[in-house]
């Protein structure tokens, strides 16, 4: 054959046709050695251990269920429930409760009250606890806000006091903390590779079984169901995202989401639509994802420069993504993204 170029060209085109687009770009890791899906803390949790056993899985699950038992705002024999119904009398708190209160107080102080664990009555008034949404009127809100102040929670030893009429909810930090505790427990038990997803809060232990980092998608805030806008590679860290898309309702074309600004008692309108925090401590990440959402980009980045200890991905309502310097080599936007990527240096 003197001129096999046609054939060669056709072959080349066809071969790219059947192998090109759909081949996995990453070699799949081996299957998990233990895996489970649990419903706890009002959400679906999936745990995948690589090298761990069913016993490790059981230990993690029971640790999380006991945390829920202690910290739930709705379960009648929880410590939080007891505090909310104490009528201002001191209540005995367990180790986890105390740790979370300390974290909540620190974050509240550092963010100028952008995280306030006593917002529960306001959240209830908007209907976010029952899904029977409605917009409370000004008078109702100002009356409720009078009883919102995380600084009036006092701790002496293991005794916690909450003024009557006030109600406390650790929901903004409990899931992240639960992931953090679960990861610690797994590390203690010698598990070196695991990935936990607690209703969207991702907690990793070590790296993947083949030693490569975990690849975690970041939810696209414009999509309500599972789409993602980029991939972040992490090892041994927690990654928590808060966004207005998680829980919201719409009235007269306006979207009202569940992330509340404690100063206004209304959904936080800071220009941000999603905040992802990556760090070593899941509880801190969880609290920061909510409070930096409330603060808005400028103040959030000020917070990052002042305190550090975590990295962040901020997405605003103008399709801009702001990624802090520590993540610049680990974050990849999906191809042809509608978003503009900005790297923030210190």
């Amino acid at each position: 054959m003197k001129r096999p170029f046609l054939l060669a060209l056709a072959c080349a085109l066809l071969l790219t046709g059947c192998t090109g687009p759909a081949q996995p770009t990453h070699t799949p890791t081996s299957d998990p050695t233990a895996e489970s899906t649990t419903f706890a803390m009002d959400t679906v949790m999936t745990f995948r251990l690589y090298g761990g056993t069913e016993e490790d899985l059981t230990a993690v699950t029971s640790r999380i269920l006991s945390l829920e038992q202690d910290l739930s705002v709705t379960l009648e024999d929880s410590q939080v429930y007891a505090l909310n119904h104490s009528g201002g009398e001191p209540v005995t708190a367990g180790e986890d409760f105390l740790a979370l209160l300390a974290l909540a107080k620190e974050l509240g102080n550092r963010t100028g009250g952008a995280l306030d664990v006593t917002m529960y009555p306001v959240v209830k008034a908007w209907g976010f606890t029952t899904s029977e949404y409605h917009i409370p009127d000004e008078d109702t809100l100002s009356a409720l806000l009078a009883n919102v102040d995380y600084t009036s929670v006092t701790v002496e030893g293991d005794q916690v006091t909450l003024p009557a009429k006030m109600e406390l909810d650790l929901g903004a930090i409990a899931k992240g903390y639960a992931g953090e505790m679960a990861a610690n427990l797994l590390r203690e038990r010698g598990v070196t590779s695991a990935i936990l997803n607690l209703g969207g809060n991702v907690q990793t232990v070590g790296s993947k079984a083949d030693g490569s980092p975990w690849r975690i998608g970041v939810q696209d805030p414009q999509q309500t169901t599972g789409g993602y806008l980029g991939v972040l590679e992490i090892r041994d860290q927690a990654m928590v995202t808060s966004g207005g898309y998680e829980r919201y309702f719409e009235e007269d074309g306006v979207r009202y989401w569940h992330i509340m600004d404690p100063h206004t008692g209304a959904p936080a309108r800071s220009g941000l639509v999603s905040v992802t925090i990556v760090g070593d401590k899941g509880g801190l990440c969880d609290g920061l994802s909510t409070s930096l959402f409330v603060l808005g980009r400028e103040k959030a980045l000020d917070y990052w420069r002042t305190y550090g200890g975590f990295e962040a991905i901020l997405i605003d309502d103008q399709n801009n993504i702001w990624v802090t310097g520590g993540l610049k080599n680990n974050f990849t936007l999906v191809a042809d993204s509608p978003y503009t990527l900005n790297i923030v240096e210190e």
Binding site: A22, P24, I195, R215, I216, G217, Q219, G226, E246
Partner: peptide, 14 residues
């Protein structure tokens, strides 16, 4: 329509 495994993701943070 593509299987999510193709995209090499281990999880999605949301």
């Amino acid at each position: 329509v593509a299987a999510a495994q193709d995209l090499g993701l281990d999880s999605i943070s949301r």
